[in-house]
Design a protein around this nucleic acid. Structure first.
Lengths: 224, 224
DNA sequence: ACCTGAACACCGTTCAAGT
DNA sequence: ACCTGAACACCGTTCAAGT
């Protein structure tokens, strides 16, 4: 009763799946993946921990729903672009930016193959790959190559952000530290990585991401 | 004393970082990621849980070391191939197969950006990208596109295997279930994904993976 | 230097009991 | 139908105490 009153006073609707997901996103954004616990969540919502289980199957379901909410928004916003290529780039950038803003989305995306958030991306990419003129027999392999590349970048960005948070450093500090490690590697055994240390320090994730998309798109062209 | 005797009788050396990592790999392979706990591990090793912390910083360190052990072996074995392209394909396949055999490696790889196991893959790929004739200014973007694609596939394969294990189904059952879900999607909103359901059911992960590598390699060629 | 194992501070999840 | 909150069965990690 007291709790319910407090909830009403705050202007929140009674406990619902949507309000749970909304609060989960807030918690994930502010405290990272380790910040989402049923205890913290129920406290924010002014309920008991067990109540959440009436609306949500388990923590995996919750994370997936939170992830899907972000991905759905991002994909819906990414309709700009005149040509199929531009639309693919726009879709890629939309999810890149979404993960930049919500790093935990990248980690969750990697955990839920074939499920809804991933399907949204696949659909957006796949349509445009078809529009590009890629023949039916090559559609799957082409779309899934793009998808896997995007998921790969998503996962790394998520891990970078997660690592930076744990060590309370920002992204630049973190990449600087990695670059330092790389420049200390054995000069002959790790010649390539060593020579990339400088690049790592001042590269632009976003334009590198786009360059990768373009590389794959360039690989499609000759086959058409 | 008793424990030490038992250890000696089993022919094991006294507790060491290597033996801890070895047993961790065994546990991860047989029981998945949730199977690796300090309690299970210390029982297998005939020690107390706390003893492990003398040799290993924490669970993250342990997982990373186990992952690195597998990746190092895989990359060392993948030296075959006459041309740079063949060497890139060989390296890719080596880690694909390693993750097929040890799915948890795919998940861990996604979690440790810039660290040793990832660096091994980057080094192997990057050298060959250089040998391909890619100019210095494009080396980073090209190598990292290939790397991210590989990590993306690695992550998805790991998640597929993990999901199949949790539901005690095999990979085929799992993909069949996903294909069923896809074929029930809305016909207009998810036209592309829906049409891919059949492909999903009988595709070959390994050859799809290789097709993606070839697509990226094909995208490099025009720029040379 | 290395190991023991109890203790601490958490988790996700369940479930009898309430309304 | 929905919620409560104590209880259960775990975790990773620490640390005084041992050898």
């Amino acid at each position: 009763m007291v709790k319910n009153t407090r909830r009403t006073q705050r202007g929140e609707a009674s406990l619902s799946r949507d309000s749970i997901i909304e609060q989960s996103i807030a918690l994930l954004d502010s405290s990272g993946e380790s910040g989402l616990t049923f205890r913290a969540l129920s406290e924010q919502l002014g309920t008991g921990a067990g109540a959440i289980y009436w609306h949500v199957a388990n923590k995996g379901d919750l994370l997936n729903a939170a992830c899907d909410s972000i991905v759905a928004q991002a994909m819906a916003a990414a309709v700009d672009g005149a040509t199929p290529k531009e639309k693919i780039r726009a879709a890629g950038l939309a999810i890149f930016d979404a993960i930049d803003a919500h790093p935990w989305v990248g980690a969750e995306l990697a955990r839920s193959p074939g499920k809804m958030p991933m399907v949204r991306i696949l659909e957006g990419i796949g349509r445009q790959v078809g529009a590009l003129g890629v023949p039916d027999r090559a559609l799957w392999q082409t779309a899934s190559a793009l998808l896997h590349y995007i998921l790969g970048v998503a996962g790394q960005n998520a891990a970078n952000a997660q690592f930076a948070r744990e060590h309370e450093a920002d992204r630049t500090d973190f990449l600087g530290a990695v670059a330092d490690d790389w420049s200390k590697l054995d000069a002959v055994e790790y010649a390539f990585t060593r020579s990339m240390a400088a690049h790592l320090r001042d590269h632009d994730d976003r334009s590198d991401f786009l360059a990768g998309i373009d590389l794959i798109l360039a690989g499609i062209a000759p086959a058409l």
